[in-house]
Design a protein around this nucleic acid. Structure first.
Length: 687
RNA sequence: CGCGGGAUGGAGCAGUCCGGUAGCUCGCGAGGCUCAUAACCUCGAGGUCAUAGGUUCGAAUCCUAUUCCCGCAACCA
């Protein structure tokens, strides 16, 4: 019985390029969709660019063009990346489309009718120069709690406290530098609490969500009244204007998930399908693939909106973790923040498709791209095991083709045919790692068979011709089964093998019947080994592509120059601060030469050393410096260092720190204490 | 006590729900083969399953406590 399945991936934002992290999601979804199609299900894969919001508006302004130009450019880039990674959408739309507007209006009608929309006044910071309201991340200022400077509008990176932008001391707009004004505006709110009962049931019952996700929602959101969701933004805003609230626009997160529906509508129009049969039909399964960061929107607001507007609810929301590279967060300065196009400049997309598949499970764990393992896995599994099967047999049957009846093989083909359902089940569940392991076990059996039969020995005697043909017929059929099972992951390999053996691979069931009596085309390498150097080259390129001129005054020539030497690394990690200060502000910082009198180790402290600094005479200060990893007490004692002496004293776990010792470096063990030239005296001020 | 995930031979992971001889891939050592892209096959070394208690005939698995890592905390997948 064929199922009707609609699948989506989260919509990439039209303000950035696709990178390896995004691909965890798109590749996983694509493999799942291809699997469903191979199984004979009616399956459609929907995605779109997410185009609305402040960020796009700001970018268009900066580049002095229209939002539609930004969107069009990014769309082209996204489509190219997806295409080259063999991610095959049935429809790739845009949230900025007529169809999406239509659905937004439709769902809105229901929300209004259900009396779920409330109007409230909201205080928000307004940039009078840029003429726009400021989202939290566009405001910076001094943390109201710990007085750390240059913190974002929502939380302090230094002390970790959260607050609202209007709490900031000395706030300024990152757009224009202007001091924001506090303005009051009307906003519309979606009263989610009114659907609390429905959401309790929907999230906790059935298999809509992975158990850990359901648990998370229960403990974190559903155990208290659900907050109202602010879904409007006053002009100027790039998005759809709210029909019954002129001058206000839907917040980007309202129309983004609706993009799934709007894009389906566009696809239905193009292919003359019935829209109702996809989004107003309980027989249709809807599967969303998303990252864990947007769980909240897809498991609470989105079902609430669909429920209200009487659309089909998702059958399942598949939530995955993030990508780490060599165990750490992707990092621009380390070069591990690799864009899709950079990867493709150096490596075959099949490698990444397989590698991700071999690591993906039905869980929200982060997936680690271990670069050494990547090389080892691709080479030993794909080249050494799978492709090698064809490589070591095809040549022997180049002229005679496959045997006309399927030979005795000791039950090997039947065994792999029987694996079909188990592999299919693991793929259905999204446990691609298990599926890959099962497939590799089948490849091991096939390699062992060829080893034992040793056709290369038999072939020396022409009397064994038939026997050799039979052995290779078995070998190639076992190989073909494996490639069928791998087809969702490696579509290009499946196509090539279809051509090699004269029959296209198009259905999962083909693994049940051996190919016999067909000619075998000239064998060519189906996949080449990956070299460590290629991966290294990609990482190097990743470092360079992220060196961008940080200040508008930097000419491209200068930027290019700095990429050539090591200075760029430091500058990439920490670009020049754009904001200028005047001489008075600099003068406010009291820098002094100090002598390190004593250094005490604090055994319990992980990072801190306790320094006692002398400024001449009896004047001393105690400073806790986070340099334990880089310096031993012996190396510091007696040295002259530079110290900020008028810094607000800071209470720390082991005492109060009364100043700060100046260091260069990125932290940890990469730290270098600064010293004055010889002749300087403790207590001297630095100008 | 904010929430969640994790800790298993050198590396990455499975096994944990439903206790019963500790498994896979890579790497390492020895041998075999020479058809194959330094590929393939066989054998071997290497783990007190984070720690401490408890339940049990029996615990990686169940219970309790502790330690350490990582992610998230509501417009970065």
């Amino acid at each position: 019985m064929s199922r009707r399945i609609l699948v989506t991936s989260a919509l990439p934002y039209a303000n950035g390029h696709i990178h390896l992290g995004h691909l965890v999601e798109y590749l996983q979804t694509d493999m799942w969709v291809r699997f469903q199609k191979l199984r004979g299900n009616e399956c459609v894969y929907i995605c779109a660019d997410d185009t609305h919001g402040t960020a796009i508006m700001i970018r268009a302004r900066k580049e002095n063009c229209d939002e539609s130009d930004v969107i069009a450019r990014m769309r082209k880039s996204h489509l190219s990346d997806f295409n080259r990674f063999q991610i095959a959408f049935d429809e790739y739309g845009s949230t900025n489309s007529d169809e999406n507007r239509e659905i937004c209006h439709d769902i809105w009608k229901f929300a209004r009718a259900a009396n779920l929309i409330a109007e409230k006044e909201v205080e928000q910071l307004f940039d009078p120069i840029a003429g726009t309201f400021l989202a939290d991340r566009f405001v910076k200022g001094t943390c109201p709690f710990c007085k750390a400077e240059d913190q974002y509008g929502d939380s302090c990176e230094k002390c970790g406290k959260t607050y609202t932008p209007k709490d900031l001391v000395n706030p300024h707009s990152t757009l224009s530098g202007a001091t924001p004004e506090l303005r009051t505006e009307k906003h519309l709110f979606f009263q989610l609490e009114k659907l609390h009962g429905f959401l309790n049931e929907w999230t906790q019952a059935g298999t809509h969500l992975q158990p850990s996700v359901a648990e998370y929602l229960k403990n974190f959101f559903l155990n208290e009244p659900l907050r109202d969701w602010d879904i409007s933004r006053p002009a100027p805003y790039f998005g759809f204007e709210i029909p019954d609230f002129p001058g206000h626009y839907w917040y980007v997160w309202y129309d983004a998930p609706i993009g799934y529906v709007g894009t389906t509508l566009a696809w239905c129009k193009r292919t003359r399908q019935s829209f109702e049969s996809w989004w107003k039909n309980s027989d249709t399964e809807i599967h969303h693939f998303i990252g864990k960061d947007i769980t909240y929107f897809h498991t609470l607001f989105w079902p609430a909106m669909l429920h209200t507007a009487q659309y089909t609810l998702p059958s399942r929301v598949h939530i995955h973790g993030f990508l780490t590279v060599d165990g750490e967060k992707m990092s621009k300065s380390r070069g591990t923040f690799v864009q899709a196009s950079t990867y493709l400049d150096h490596l075959d997309p099949a490698y990444l498709r397989y590698y991700y598949a071999s690591k993906l499970g039905n869980n929200t764990n982060d997936l680690d791209l271990n670069l050494d393992e990547f090389v080892a896995k691709v080479n030993s599994d794909l080249v050494g095991k799978v492709v090698n099967l064809a490589s070591r047999t095809a040549r022997f049957v180049q002229t005679c083709g496959l045997s006309s009846t399927y030979p005795e093989d000791g039950g090997l083909f039947a065994e792999a045919a029987k694996d079909s359902e188990q592999i299919a089940n693991t793929m259905e569940d999204g446990d691609f790692n298990r599926a890959m392991r099962l497939v590799m076990t089948a490849a091991d059996r096939a390699n062992l068979y060829i080893d034992q039969q040793a056709p290369w020995t038999l072939v020396k005697d022409p009397a064994n011709a038939k026997k050799v043909q039979d052995i290779c017929t078995v070998g190639l059929n076992l190989f073909r089964q494996i490639v069928i099972y791998l087809a969702p992951v490696l579509p290009e390999l499946a196509t090539k093998v279809g051509e090699l053996l004269g029959e296209p691979i198009h259905a999962w069931e083909q693994a049940q019947t051996p190919l016999i009596g067909t000619p075998v085309n000239t064998f060519e390498h189906l996949m080449v080994r990956v070299k460590k150097e290629q991966v290294e080259a990609m990482i190097e390129a990743g470092k360079e592509e992220n060196v961008v001129p940080q200040t508008s005054g930097t000419s491209t020539d200068e930027a290019a120059k700095t990429t050539a030497n090591t200075v760029s690394e430091a500058l990439t990690a920490e670009p020049f601060v754009e904001e200028r200060i005047n001489i008075d502000q600099f003068g406010a910082v009291d820098l002094r030469v100090a002598e390190v009198l004593r250094v005490e180790e604090i055994p319990e402290a992980r990072k801190l050393l306790k320094l006692t600094l002398g400024f001449g005479g009896d004047v001393q200060k105690t400073v806790f410096a986070g340099i334990k990893a880089a310096y031993t007490p012996e190396r510091l004692t007696g040295r002259l260092v530079l110290c900020v002496v008028n810094l607000e004293p800071r209470k720390m776990k082991f005492g109060t720190s009364e100043g700060m010792v100046l260091c260069a470096g990125t932290g940890g063990s990469d730290l270098f204490v600064l010293s004055p030239d010889s002749g300087a005296k403790p207590g001297q001020r630095i100008h």
